[in-house]
Simulated assay, not measured.
Amino acid sequence: MANDNRTIREIRARNYDEQPLCITYPPLGANANLELKGFFIHNLPKFYGQAGNDPNRHLLEFHMMCEGAILNGVTEDQFKLRAFPFSLLDAAKDWLFYLTPGSISTWKEMKAAFLEKFYPDSRHNRAKKAITTIEQDHGETMYEYWERFKRLVAQCPYHGLSEDDLLVNFYEGLGQEDQRMVNSATGGGLENYSIADAKEIIERLASTTRNYGRSQRGSRNASSMGTSSSSTQNLEQSVNDLTHLVKNMMVNNPNKDGGQGNQVECNYFQGPHMEEACPIMIEEGIGVENVSAMGYGNYNARNPFGGGYYNYDPSGWTRVPCLLLARPPALL
Rank of each mutant, 00 (worst) to 15 (best):
R327V: 09
E200W: 12
D94T: 07
P329V: 03
P26K: 11
N211G: 05
V288S: 07
N72Y: 06
Q233A: 13
V74W: 08
S231R: 15
D54E: 08
V288Q: 09
D137A: 10
N248H: 14
Y145C: 07
G189F: 07
G139E: 00
G316P: 02
P20S: 08
M142T: 01
P321G: 04
S162L: 11
N5C: 11
E191C: 09
Y16F: 15
K256E: 04
T133G: 06
K150E: 13
D54N: 15
G306V: 11
S184F: 08
R204A: 12
H159V: 05
L331E: 01
A301S: 04
N252T: 14
S122V: 06
A222R: 15
I134G: 06
Y48P: 01
T132H: 04
P120C: 04
T7C: 00
G213A: 08
H42Q: 06
A154C: 12
G287I: 10
G271R: 14
T318V: 11
Q176E: 05
I286K: 12
W95K: 06
N298C: 04
V182K: 00
S231D: 08
N5K: 15
A2T: 03
G173W: 00
L89A: 11
S292A: 10
K108N: 15
S103C: 13
R12D: 07
N290A: 10
N169P: 00
A69P: 00
G287R: 07
P304K: 05
Y143K: 13
N267T: 03
R302K: 14
N43I: 10
P272V: 12
D94A: 07
D137I: 02
I8R: 11
K150M: 13
F269V: 02
L242P: 00
F62H: 06
P27E: 14
D197G: 03
H42V: 03
G218P: 09
W95Y: 14
R12Y: 10
E275F: 06
E144V: 02
L81K: 13
Q233N: 10
Y312T: 04
T75W: 09
M181N: 07
A127T: 00
T209R: 15
I201H: 06
N183C: 10
L331R: 05
A91M: 13
Y25I: 04
T141P: 04
Q263R: 13
G175T: 01
L242M: 05
E191M: 12
W107P: 04
I280H: 12
N267K: 10
S229I: 09
A130F: 03
Q155D: 05
E203L: 12
